[in-house]
Amino acid sequence: MDSDAVKAVILKELSNIAPEIESDEVPADQDMREALELDSMDFLNLIIAVSKRTGVAIPEADYAKVLTLDAMIAYLMRGD
Rank of each mutant, 00 (worst) to 15 (best):
R78N: 09
Y75Q: 08
I10G: 00
E25S: 14
E20F: 10
L46M: 12
E37I: 14
L44I: 11
K52F: 01
L14E: 11
V50Q: 02
E13W: 08
N16A: 08
N45T: 13
S40N: 13
G79T: 07
M72A: 11
P27H: 08
I10M: 02
S40A: 13
G55A: 05
P19V: 02
I47R: 05
S3N: 08
A71Q: 14
I17F: 09
L67H: 09
A35T: 10
E37M: 13
A71H: 08
R53D: 05
D80Q: 15
A74H: 09
D24R: 04
V26N: 03
Q30T: 07
I21Y: 01
S23M: 05
A8V: 00
D24I: 01
Y75H: 02
I58W: 14
T54Q: 02
G79K: 15
I21H: 01
D24E: 11
M1F: 14
E20A: 09
I58L: 09
N16I: 00
Y63R: 12
L44A: 15
A8F: 04
V6S: 00
A71T: 08
E13N: 14
T54N: 11
I73L: 04
E22I: 04
I73R: 02
T54K: 02
E25Q: 13
V56E: 14
L67S: 15
D70M: 07
V66M: 00
M72D: 00
V50T: 03
I58C: 13
F43Q: 00
V9A: 09
